[in-house]
């Protein structure tokens, strides 16, 4: 009844229950707090300044030898204050600039339902003191190519999205209240 293994089992069982209950309480309280801080409607401002399009042939840029793919880069301005995303259960916030666009038009009878979303730039914010973003003419981090070879003359809406990473609990995603539209140029012709 009071053997060593019995005592160990009791202690570890109690610990597991405590940890589990604590984790649930922490995640519920921090979600409520995050909602009260109004994370779904954070103001901000995004402007895409120019885009650059070039045809690349290496596999790392989506191409094959002889079959190039258009790679798009851009420069943008960004203003956002993400401080409300940080509370005592926030480990980090991952922000990323996305472009969303529809697939190529395939004749006028059949409306294409194809859709794409790509990341141009991302950044890890480690704490609240770095949460005020003010970027001027920032270069995109990635050279973006599409599933299909051609990206030029397609219009993308550009937004900033974020992923709040907690110390314990559920991950939360959201979008900044700001958007800009950009039309990709023909290859090699700078804005």
């Amino acid at each position: 009844m009071f053997s060593l293994s019995q005592r160990l089992q009791d202690i570890s069982g109690f610990m597991t229950t405590t940890i589990f209950v604590m984790a649930v309480v922490i995640s519920v309280v921090s979600i409520v707090q995050l909602n009260l801080s109004g994370y779904q409607s954070l103001p901000g401002d995004i402007t895409v300044n120019d885009t650059h399009n070039s045809i690349r042939y290496s596999r790392n840029y989506g191409g094959k030898s002889g079959h190039g793919k258009e790679n798009v880069k851009l420069r943008f301005d960004l203003d956002a204050d993400l401080t409300p995303l940080f509370n005592w259960n926030t480990k980090q916030v991952f922000v990323y600039l996305v472009g969303e666009y529809d697939g190529p038009e395939k004749g006028d009878l059949k409306q294409s339902e194809e859709h794409s979303k790509v990341i141009f730039w991302d950044h890890i914010i480690p704490d609240a003191s770095h949460a005020k973003l003010s970027l001027r003419n920032k270069k995109s981090k990635y050279s973006v190519y599409d599933y299909y070879p051609v990206l030029s003359n397609r219009t993308a809406s550009v937004k900033l999205e974020f992923n709040v990473q907690p110390w314990v609990g559920p991950l939360i995603w959201g979008t900044l209240d700001a958007t800009d539209e950009v039309r990709f140029h023909d290859p090699k012709s700078k804005n």
Binding site: E113, E114, K117, V118, I119, Y142
Partner: peptide, 26 residues
Amino acid sequence: VGDIIVYKTTVRDVPIVHRIVREHIV
């Protein structure tokens, strides 16, 4: 995009946990 997914490839046995940076519905 932005979701963190767990996927497997035939190259490696262990599942990999990484973030989606591009999605294309085709």
